[in-house]
């Protein structure tokens, strides 16, 4: 009888775990990680464009110090944040990361808006190239973020629904943080050109 138990127990455990969503967690967890690294990739790509962009704008609009330093600051802040996979399981660190990236987003859009006032800058081939690259990268960021949001949604639904939530509790799987709506708005809305403030 005891022998039968020792044979059945692993089997039951395996069946029980897959029935309780443990295996689904593994798949979905990996998926969120993959889509997260795509987000990071694209943010990195954007950060890499910034120094060149700042240099080019400086050449034509040197006295726009305010915006230029804002971009440079935001860029260095983004660079200083250590992004480890643990960020995904830590809502606070995630919020910090998101805030820093959001700051760079708005600083960059302000910079591009300011650039509109300099016809020579706008006509510069180097600047136009950078502009096209920045546009493409921002679009990739949006796509990567949307895909991350989708994958987290799927993961969170799986973790939170019954009876999977019991398994999740047992093994310490928590719901993952996602990008918030306010930030989404800031990214998808067009930059505002305020002629009152620009000199």
């Amino acid at each position: 009888m005891r022998q039968l138990y020792t044979k059945l127990l692993p089997l039951l455990l395996v069946l029980g775990l897959s029935g309780c969503g443990y295996n689904a967690f593994q798949t979905l967890d990996e998926e969120t990680k993959a889509s997260w690294s795509e987000v990071l990739n694209q943010y990195q790509r954007r950060a890499d464009l910034v120094p060149n962009l700042v240099e080019t704008v400086k050449g034509y609009a040197e006295h726009e110090k305010e915006v230029l330093t804002e971009v440079a600051d935001a860029r260095s802040k983004v660079g200083s944040i250590q992004v480890t996979p643990e960020v995904l399981n830590d809502p606070e660190a995630f919020a910090k990361f998101q805030a820093a990236q959001g700051q760079l987003t708005s600083a960059l859009s302000r910079l591009m808006a300011v650039a509109e006032n300099y016809p020579n800058l706008k006509a510069d081939q180097g600047f136009r190239d950078l502009q096209a690259q920045l546009e493409g990268t921002e679009n990739r960021v949006t796509v990567a973020r949307n895909r991350y949001i989708e994958s987290v949604k799927e993961y969170n639904i799986s973790v939170r629904s019954f009876p999977n939530n019991l398994t999740a509790m047992m093994f310490g799987y928590k719901a993952k943080p996602s990008f918030t709506v306010e930030n989404e708005k800031a990214i998808s809305s067009a930059p505002k050109v305020d002629f009152g403030n620009t000199k």
């Binding site: 795509e38 096209a132 546009e135 493409g136 679009n139 960021v141 949006t142 796509v143």
Partner: peptide, 8 residues
Amino acid sequence: DFGGGGAS
């Protein structure tokens, strides 16, 4: 698959 590359 596409990842948002290209231009408008």
